[in-house]
Amino acid sequence: MAAAHRAAVLGSPIAHSLSPVLHRAAYQALGLTGWSYDRFEVDEDALPGFLAGLDGGADAGTWAGLSLTMPLKRAVIPLLDEISDTAASVEAVNTVVLTPDGRRLGDNTDIPGIAAALHERGVDKVERAAVLGAGATASSALAALAGICTGEVTAYVRSAARAAEMREWGERLGVRVRTADWADAAEALTAPLVVATTPAGAADALADAVPERPGTLFDVLYEPWPTALAAAWSARGGAVVGGLDLLVHQAVLQVERMTGRGPAPLAAMRRAGEAALALRPT
């Protein structure tokens, strides 16, 4: 019998997460029959206790890794033994590797996942870019754009406080960031690369402002899909990278880090994700 290994995704809310579908598809394709991947509803207050339980529970020694979603990406950092430079650059951890000797190693696969998803669509360098929004995903987008955008990134935000945060992230990450008011977000759509990091529905009103010849849109949402903006973008002939692309690419890296096996089966994981989304009510 294959040795048992466990992994899981933690967050709150978590019932919608596609991570179990993607990771289980990878285990099946890689022949990892002893591996399981679950989801757990865990908020910031419950996180320390959950991690402590992994060390002393009946399954101690079988845990290999954790995927983290909101609101845990920053809350987990004080509970780790070490974090990667990538995670430290945006103060966000979405991946924890649990080593056999009990160490907790934090990493961020969102940043390389964004870059890999864009590379897959042929976007490796752009002269300028626009970011819609200013949350945690926006800072990861800026970190990815540090290696992609040779010029200025304009961030469209709703408050002076958010604008200041994005400029600070730009300074830390080595990205030239200009901020603009959300009321002027339609002008963002003329950029060669637009990264939409806003919640569902927030950018729908921009659909009517898509230019005749749009560049590339990276919309980080995957449900509902397509968003109004993504649909309008495609109708105009623009290239669209979606949230499922990001989810799959970052999960590929998580699988490889947690299992020590690779390359992870990108195509099989994407097919599993698409099939699962197709079954969800619209």
Rank of each mutant, 00 (worst) to 15 (best):
G122E: 11
W182S: 01
A180C: 05
G122I: 08
A163Q: 14
S159W: 06
L189H: 07
T154F: 14
T86K: 07
L189R: 01
E127W: 13
I83N: 04
G102I: 04
M166I: 14
V131I: 13
A191F: 05
T95N: 11
P100K: 00
D107F: 09
A115W: 05
Y156G: 15
V93I: 08
Y156F: 14
G135V: 12
R162D: 15
A186I: 09
K73L: 05
E152R: 12
A143Y: 06
G170N: 03
R176I: 05
I83W: 01
D208C: 11
E171Y: 11
R121W: 09
C149D: 02
V177Y: 01
G102A: 01
G102V: 10
E91Q: 13
T198S: 02
K73D: 05
A87E: 13
A183P: 00
R74G: 14
A200I: 09
A203L: 06
K125F: 14
A115Y: 05
A209F: 11
T190N: 10
V194A: 09
R162E: 14
R178P: 06
E91T: 15
A141I: 04
R162L: 13
A87V: 06
A186Q: 12
E165M: 15
A146K: 00
A205M: 07
A191V: 07
V194E: 11
T197I: 05
A75H: 09
E127L: 14
V123N: 10
R176M: 04
T190P: 14
A207F: 08
V195I: 11
E187F: 12
A87G: 11
T86N: 06
A144T: 10
A188G: 12
V97C: 00
A207Y: 09
V131Q: 06
I83Q: 08
D124N: 15
P112G: 01
E82K: 07
A141N: 02
L80H: 04
L173F: 11
V153H: 07
A87D: 10
E91R: 12
R178A: 03
D204L: 02
A136M: 03
L189P: 05
V194P: 15
L173M: 04
R104E: 01
A130Q: 10
A141T: 03
V195C: 07
E82I: 04
E212D: 15
S139N: 08
V153P: 15
A146R: 00
L145P: 05
A136E: 08
A155M: 13
T137Q: 11
V153R: 02
A75P: 08
L193D: 08
N108A: 02
P192W: 00
G147Q: 05
A138W: 05
T190G: 13
